Simulated scan of single mutants.
Amino acid sequence: MWVTSQKARGFSSRLVNLVNRPFFHRYPEGDRACLLLHGLGGGVYELQLLAEVLYEAGWTVQGILYPGHDRPRAQMPASTWHQWYEAVVTAFKPLRDTHRTVAVVGFSTGGTLALHLADEYAVDALVLLAPFLRIYRPWFLPLAPETLVQSFGQWIPWVPRRSLPIRDRALRQAAEAACFFKSFNLQAVRSALNLIAQVAQELPLITTPTLIFQSHADTIVDPQGAQIIYAQLGSPQKELHWLKDSDHLLPLDVEREQVFAKVVAFLGR
């Protein structure tokens, strides 16, 4: 069923084979399910290893691909957060109907989608991995990246994608082999920013128990976005854990084992 082993997830990361295909693995006689949501321009391969760990811990796991992310193409196509969210709800509702407990794990833009879902539906627990609230701004950039995207994204459809933000070399190679796109669609990025504006208003209303992970070394999202989410989230049960050696793609990077252990412990309460 799974293409990697526990050994491969640990020290022998060169053995990992990541696959960008939707998955649904029902744990025998289990009543706990976890929906895993990938990032913008990414895919379920980003959460594959974490899904394996959760399945081994007794969770039914499901990973989906959003519209605009569901097949390899020369360029990433345009799509909107409303389309992504519709796919999320379509997957979530059957899990909610058939399991006593349903948790949602969201990476990057998947975390923003997970927050919006928790505002509208009964989610038992949230895990946010490097949640996308602000774009990382290098010191040499004169304007906020959001301003540039909103301005030039109307006329420039794509920008080239650089190497995936993973410091673990073997996992980066495996992820780049699984990734569908070599570009980012700026219309999709603009739509993700519109989702962020919506979720920013909803944060005080969300009371779902929430676990947040963020790396200080993230080169894609502004790490302070995680602090803002933690401070403004209405949940009385919330935790923020900082990492220091990983880049953006936390579930595939050098501190992934630490992330996996804390996620399993948090969801198992």
Rank of each mutant, 00 (worst) to 15 (best):
G58I: 12
R134T: 08
Y27V: 15
E120Q: 15
F11T: 10
L240S: 12
L148D: 02
L186H: 04
V123H: 14
F23D: 00
F24E: 07
R134S: 13
L117N: 09
R190F: 00
A114C: 05
F107K: 02
Y136L: 02
N185L: 01
W81F: 15
Y45F: 15
Q154M: 09
Q6T: 13
P251Q: 04
F11S: 14
P67K: 08
C34K: 01
P223L: 09
H38M: 05
V264H: 06
Y121L: 14
Q62N: 07
P223K: 06
V199E: 02
L164T: 10
L252C: 09
H25F: 14
L126V: 07
V19Y: 02
S79T: 13
P138V: 05
Q173F: 07
A91Y: 12
K244A: 09
V61R: 05
L128S: 09
A192H: 03
T90V: 04
N17A: 11
L141D: 01
A114Y: 11
D70P: 00
Q237M: 11
R71E: 12
R26F: 04
N185W: 01
R161C: 05
I228Q: 14
I206V: 11
Y27R: 12
H248I: 07
S13E: 04
R161H: 04
T4H: 12
P236Q: 03
R134A: 12
L240E: 07
P251W: 01
L50W: 06
G30W: 14
Q154V: 12
R21C: 01
P131I: 06
T112W: 03
L193Y: 06
Y45T: 03
S235L: 06
A226F: 12
L50C: 05
E52R: 08
Q258P: 00
Y85M: 10
P223W: 07
I166N: 08
